[in-house]
Design a protein around this nucleic acid. Structure first.
Lengths: 107, 107
DNA sequence: ATTCATATGTAGTTTGCCTACGTATAGCGT
DNA sequence: ACGCTATACGTAGGCAAACTACATATGAAT
């Protein structure tokens, strides 16, 4: 799957990963890859700006930490982020329902 | 559902509608709306350029006809278009599988 | 020393759908 | 006759989101 196909769904994916617990950007990229069975290998230039966007929206909260001398920005899902995630999930169901129905072919 | 959410899936939707038989642009827009239960109300500025793109790709074939004094460009799904539609459908299954799994939440 | 893995980020580009507009005919009500 | 709505096709310019490519830095391994 082409990585650009996540367009419009990236925010939900990031929020979903953070639902399992706080994580830093690099770790999020790995988690995404792991959870998708290797399908999602998102470039840093996609993920980092997205995280900043989510942070500005107050859906996640980022704090600087230092682990083994390396700086990490660890993100935590906020209460607003949990609501947003729920909203994204129901939108996802609606979206797949509509497109799947029209696309047909046993979908 | 916001109409812009079809991004990346519009071509497949158009091909799927034309699978049922030849149709002109305006009719395609109506069919899309009907099949989606009113969810997809795509503007002409989205659909017409997309149809020309599909035509250039040889997935559909367009011919001018005149009905009741009005010019219509009727599109027919080509053999290559059928293949492309099949490809889009399997991509759709893969896509929803990956995103749905990562998004979780009972998806 | 050099290279790889870890870790974050910016700059500029491309894609693809959007909004807004322009054109034209048919049919209906007044 | 006139205006409004439905039918019908299309272009121009804009914008958001993800892309590619690059820049930076530390720790660990060879």
């Amino acid at each position: 799957m082409d990585a650009s196909d996540v367009r419009g769904h990236l925010d939900g994916l990031l929020l979903a990963v953070l639902e399992s617990g706080p994580l830093h950007g690099y770790g999020i990229i790995e988690a995404l890859q792991r959870r998708s069975g290797g399908a999602l290998q998102l470039p840093t230039g996609t993920v980092y700006p997205a995280l900043r966007r989510l942070e500005r929206a107050r859906w996640i909260e980022g704090t600087w930490t230092v682990v083994d001398g390396r700086k990490r920005r660890v993100y935590t899902l906020s209460p607003a982020g949990k609501k947003e995630l729920a909203r994204r999930r129901s939108e996802w169901v609606r979206f797949t329902g509509v497109i799947g129905t029209v696309l047909g072919g046993g979908a």
